[in-house]
Each structure stands twice: as C-alpha cells, then as structure tokens.
Write a protein that binds this DNA or RNA. Structure first.
Lengths: 132, 132
DNA sequence: CGAGATTACATGCACACGCATCAAATGCAA
DNA sequence: TTGCATTTGATGCGTGTGCATGTAATCTCG
C-alpha cells in the first residue's frame, strides 16, 4: 500500500536524522571536551560571538538564548552559570527590566571561542560531508 | 570568500538538523510520556517488534540494540532493565554464549508497541512533513 | 591444561537536562 | 494607588546518559 510505504519512508528519514545527529553530536562533544566545553556550551558561545543581539547591542537575555539553542530555560540558566564560573561569560543587570539578565562574552570567552571554532567547523565538515 | 560561504552553509545545515531533531524529539517524548515511555524506549520496542534479529531469531543482544539506537552499552543496559521491570521485555540467557543476554518482547510489550506506534508515526508525519 | 587478553553485560559515579516551583519585577485593571 | 496576573530567571528534584570500572564467560596461545 502507498500509505504503508509513505509511513516507512518517514521512519527511515527519521532514523537517518537520528544517526546523523547522534554521530555528529558525539563527535563534537569529544572534540570540545579537551577544551572544557560540551556541544551546548559551544552553541551558546558561538551565538554570543556573532555579536548582533536582538536589542542591537551585544548582549542576549537568557530566554532568547534558550530559544536559539533548543534548551529549556532552566538548562540555560545553569549553563550560563557554568560558563560564568569559568570566566567565559558575564551576567549583567538590564536597566530597563530589572528581572532580566544580559549575558555577554568576556575577553577570555571570546578568545576560547576563536580557538575552538575551527575545531567545531572541522567536525561539521567531516560529518556532514556526504549529506547534500 | 568561497571557503567562508561553504563554512557558513555547513553551520546553517547543522543548525537545521539540530532544530528538526530537537523539535521532533521533544514532541515524541511528550506524546509517548502518557504511555510511560521515552523516545529511546520506543526506539527499542520498535526494533524488537520488527522481529528479524541478526541471528535469524526474534531476540537481540544488548550491544546489537545499542548500535542501532545510538545509545551507549550502559544506557541500553539500564533501559532494558526499566522495560523489564515494566514487563515489556524479558532478558534470557543465550545458550551458546553465557555472557550474552537475549532481549525479546513480552506479549504486553508487543501490545503496547502496537498501541503506541500510530502515535509515534503521527508525530513523525507532522514534524517531518516539510522536509522533502 | 593454564594464564592472560578479550568480550558481554552490569554498576558506581558525575552531570546535563526538563518539569515544577519560587522570588522578584513588571504590567494591567479597578 | 492597590491587588492580581504575567513574566524573567534561579533552584529543588527526578531521571536518562556516558565514562570508567567490575564481574563473569569466552578465546587464544604456549
């Protein structure tokens, strides 16, 4: 039946995504581990390093980051705390909304990002090469 | 530069994969949670329900399952333990290699799989619709 | 046969994550 | 203004995962 074929195709497509994701994520984690980062950490650093935050400045709010990297708000809160403890980012007050926290890269964070980015790019080019 | 464009394309491609994976995985977990399963649990049940194990029988060894569902051997060991505690699978000795464990579906496991499969398929068709 | 290497699975441990909840700040309506 | 709902980020808690290791069975080679 056509319906069964379509369904089976869907399952295969999903399995391919799972395989590609698992392999690449695992490879990224291994490559970044030597620099004291996990893949999510780098995603956040990479976002912050882009510079252009929604407010036009160079600082993001926690929830904005969470949306971009597909993590829960609580996960992001702790991730930022870890990065701050390592001196890679800093949390600052937001004048116009004192509930909010503005997160920005420190010099050390920017330096580490510049150091690690080629490593991440290399992994991506190696893992995503035959994907079209 | 062409190199920079290629690199940027790679990053975008990876972000699309992350987005699709996160959204679908999250949706799957939510849909399956009502049945007491997480997405990995279902992957294993779905594999076991296919029937054709590498040895020609209907039972898999733990490491074989781990390879298929992209989990570590330890994660699989615990996952199988959970499913067994819930009466969905059973672990049996392997006569020709007493180190190995043969995992197979129970009737209850097969029934639950049949009940949950349409739910999973629906999520896949909804999330992967506009992906080509 | 016997000793060491290897394989298959289980388990201690640390950790990143999501959900539920909390406190503080803000927004809104009476 | 006051009172309540909403929003923002932090935290308690449970859980699923990977790494390192342990135990038992198997294999290999002398």
């Amino acid at each position: 039946m056509a319906a069964e074929n379509a369904e089976q195709g869907l399952v295969e497509q999903w399995r391919e995504i799972l395989t590609l994701h698992a392999r690449t994520q695992c490879e990224l984690d291994r490559a970044l581990h030597g620099h004291g980062l996990c893949a999510s950490d780098f995603e956040v650093l990479d976002l912050l390093a882009e510079g252009a935050a929604p407010d036009g400045g160079c600082a993001y709010r926690v929830q904005e980051i969470a949306d971009r990297v597909h993590l829960s708000q609580s996960a992001l809160s702790r991730l930022i705390a870890r990065l701050e403890k390592d001196g890679l980012v800093e949390r600052g007050m937001c004048p116009e909304d004192r509930r909010a926290v503005r997160v920005s890269l420190t010099d050390r964070g920017r330096a580490l990002h510049g150091e690690v980015r080629p490593v991440q790019r290399e992994v991506l080019s190696r893992m995503l090469a035959h994907t079209g």
